[in-house]
Design a protein around this nucleic acid. Structure first.
Lengths: 323, 323
DNA sequence: ACGCATCACTGAAGCGTTTAAGTCTATTTG
DNA sequence: CAAATAGACTTAAACGCTTCAGTGATGCGT
């Protein structure tokens, strides 16, 4: 509370009889003799000096922070992704500033716009086609996860082959003999023509499926409510566009006394660790590979190395007991 | 990538024929005429001007960022807590810088020390008794969640009545007739005499229980491995100090073909939303209340309002099917 | 012994804001 | 009507660091 003033670089300079510049160099191991470096280190430790990241950032133009703009942190899988990215960034001496668009394209735009003082941005776009992305990507390195940003010059993209993922899921369900299904996609304010939705419609037509397409929030309680409305219409199977939503369906099914997969088959999407425990059949994206690739791309870009690589993740089907 | 330069306040000043100071005031609605304000607003919008948070922070001494130092983000409950706090902070125009001590007191110290340029700190301490807390708390407002920081002058504390929580869990298990139990606490590098451990030992003695105390990581896969080692010793019940660990036990039990709670009862701690789905009996802490209280305290303190309140959370028992 | 690098460091400008103090005009007040 | 007051700005000094362009000393080759 006391907000005690911390030591500045000037005080260290005074203590060692050097100039502030020399101290600055010494602390970062540049341009100084071994001996001076040692002396400075000692004095700094003595005074409890710790460089002020704000001042450093203003002077150097680099903050060491990477913004992580998540589509919706209510989704457990995205939580896991965020934690993984934060952890991996730390190994590069960088910190993640985690932001949550909460499924709202408007908020996504606001957050992306306000985001300065960040060396790079990793984004799981809610609205990949939005008009503001090119402008953002022009002012700092942007790496997109999930969907590409078609109109922006990103520093890299780790995209999911959602077309293949949807096909895989729907073919699997169709192969089990299901014709009448429901599809639950995450609720998001006004994002028309989402790529995933388009894929679902196309595949439904191709496979001659009767689908009831609805939206659901990612929170367990809220998703359960939506599912409780849906299940009485007795779809043969429910395909959820995130494991979090699928958990809600499982919960609702149990509350209604429906057996899974007997009365209703349930499929998820993403493969959160908990899915292995609850037996959810789901489409798997390799989260570790995604984390690793995204971090590598954004770190390279923030160092000025140009990559602009597009890495495509292939889906895999994890069959368990729910479908 | 182009790193296109954004407009500065000076350019807005030039465009309007005012001084930078006037623009600064106008943009924050102070000391200027309505008319000038409007003119500045328009010019700023035109130029796409957005204040640089770094420079603003250096000049004003406030960043709008609150540090959130989590004990271990592998724990799903702590993930949920972090997401909730970030979301709630946003309503106060503040951002959360989420950091993960990963159960390591050493890392906790490093992170806490480096943490400057943050208006306040919310921490779920790994090592509440550590010697560096007083120093940290002196340089910025600190709010502790979970365990209090006994030696530091914090700006507030939202503590869990772990004594009551442990008693509740152990009495419940004892009441079910269990004598031989195992307790799984989160792995953390070298933190001696953790309060929770002490409570467990005391209660074990009082209730005359035979307990096998072990540690486990919070990740599902890793926790499952530990549990797979433990379960063959056939404890009557396993009490886990986090739901995440309990999930691992449930998984291992299923892998080994043990019925829950028939062959082994499992109890968790924290009450993550998923526990309602997997039927985990657990000790509940009201996460929404905790989030709300912690944010309120840290925001008040970062505004200079002194509170220093200690809020104690009472445990509740959520009985489900696993014990 | 001479020029030429190299090394170790210093001086000072700047990064883009905020903010305390000061200036000038217009208005109010005794 | 002089003096005090308020309003609307401007000036300039921070904020704490980095970094560019020097400045003397040394070491080196010839």
């Amino acid at each position: 509370m006391a907000q005690r003033k911390r030591a500045t670089i000037r005080e260290v300079a005074q203590a060692t009889g050097l100039s502030p510049a020399a101290v600055s160099y010494a602390l970062r191991g540049m341009q100084v003799s071994e001996e001076t470096m040692e002396r400075v280190r000692r004095a700094a430790a003595e005074l409890g000096y710790e460089a002020d990241p704000i001042a450093r950032a203003l002077a150097s133009g680099k903050t060491g922070m990477i913004g992580l703009l998540c589509g919706s942190l209510e989704d457990l899988w995205q939580q896991a992704l965020a934690v993984g990215i934060a952890r991996t960034l730390r190994d590069d001496e960088r910190y993640a500033l985690i932001l949550d668009a909460a499924g709202d394209p408007g908020r996504e735009q606001t957050l992306a716009r306000q985001l300065r003082g960040v060396d790079g941005l990793i984004v799981q776009p809610v609205d990949p086609a939005a008009a503001f992305w090119p402008e953002i990507a022009e002012s700092l390195p942007v790496v997109a996860i999930g969907d590409a940003l078609p109109r922006a010059q990103t520093a890299g993209e780790v995209v999911f082959d959602n077309r293949a993922g949807v096909t895989m899921a729907l073919e699997y369900l169709a192969g089990k003999g299901h014709r009448k299904l429901a599809v639950l996609t995450p609720t998001q304010a006004s994002t028309p023509d989402r790529p995933a939705d388009v894929h679902v419609m196309a595949e439904a037509k191709r496979l001659d499926l009767d689908i009831d397409m609805r939206t659901a929030p990612q929170g367990l309680a809220a998703a359960t409510e939506v599912a409780a409305d849906l299940l009485p219409t007795r779809p043969g199977a429910v395909f959820c566009f995130s494991d979090s939503i699928a958990y809600g369906v499982l919960r609702a099914a149990r509350d209604l006394g429906l057996s899974v997969p007997g009365d209703v088959a349930v499929m998820g999407y993403d493969d959160h660790p908990m899915s292995s425990l609850v037996g959810l059949t789901t489409v798997n994206w390799d989260i570790d590979a995604i984390v690793e690739a995204a971090v590598r791309l954004v770190v390279a870009a923030s160092n000025g190395k140009i990559r602009r690589r597009r890495i495509v993740q292939p889906p895999r089907l994890h069959q368990r007991t729910s479908a």
